[in-house]
Amino acid sequence: MAAQAAILEGPIARPARSLGCGRGDALVKDMTTATMTSVSMPADWRDFLALTKPRVMTLVVFTGLCGLLAAPGHINPVLAFTTILCIALGAGAAGALNQWVEADSDRLMKRTANRPLPAGRMERQSALHFGVGLSFFSVLTLALATNWVAGAILAVSILFYVLVYTIWLKPRTAQNIVIGGAAGAFPPVIGWAAVTGDVSALPIALFCLIFFWTPPHFWALALYVRPDYANAGIPMLPVVAGDTVTRRQIWGYTAIMAIAAFAPVLLRQTGALYGTVALIATGVFAFYAFAVFRSRESDPAHMRAERRLFRYSILYLFIMFGAVVVDRWVMA
């Protein structure tokens, strides 16, 4: 029994698919469901990867890379790679800790029910250890490879996301993502700080752009997944204040975001190239946001304008940050 205990992840009953069905394990597939549900399995490495929310990480890595590339000065390519890796790992650690905290509410939402913890494929403590370990590793590695300013900002961003957003704000207030959005706005500042060792006007402007972009981005999604949030008891704005207020807030924050989008030009940190791209891309964003503001659709299944704004908002950030980098290089 000692040998058995050593090879088991923990005494948890697991659903059939948690044993790796569909991942090509013929022997597992041959087992009957009755047998499969009775055995605890070590969590698969893919489940640890899923804890890090790899899809969300794409935007974090890209904005961090742009912050690094837009910064004045030179950084060794190996250290640049390490910076981006640490930003990605830090984001992954925050994602893992977020899933550790929200395992119960994730179980209630269709969008998140198949995550490793709510689906029962992993013990909760494993996610905690993984998240904490990854946090320390990413922060210390970044600090030692580049400088302690970058390391400190990465640490603050992880703590902000987990403590301020996930634990404090998200279950308590409909303004959760407004303030919590700051956590996602740190990567370009970290990238910049890794090169320069300080924080100046442009990274703060980029921080503000992501900060004010977050509410329209998230609320567009929240409008059409409102039933999910309501089921989980998460006070997202559409659940608490209704669709009309949410649409008005999306439009209001889009206006503030537009000002933030032009801040790099007004601060003379970028030139005409970025200004032109910002004008067009922000104009399209405003057009889609206005369509959401005007929409009176109440059935989440038919909210086309909201889905369109959500999808475009992701592309928008890629365009804007790409334009910052190209413009800075052209100016240089």
Binding site: I7, L8, L19, G20, D25, L27, V28, D30, M31, T35, V39, M41, P42, D44
Partner: peptide, 9 residues
């Protein structure tokens, strides 16, 4: 089969 599945994992 269970032992094999665990070992494979």
């Amino acid at each position: 089969a269970e032992q094999d599945a665990i070992r494979a994992r």
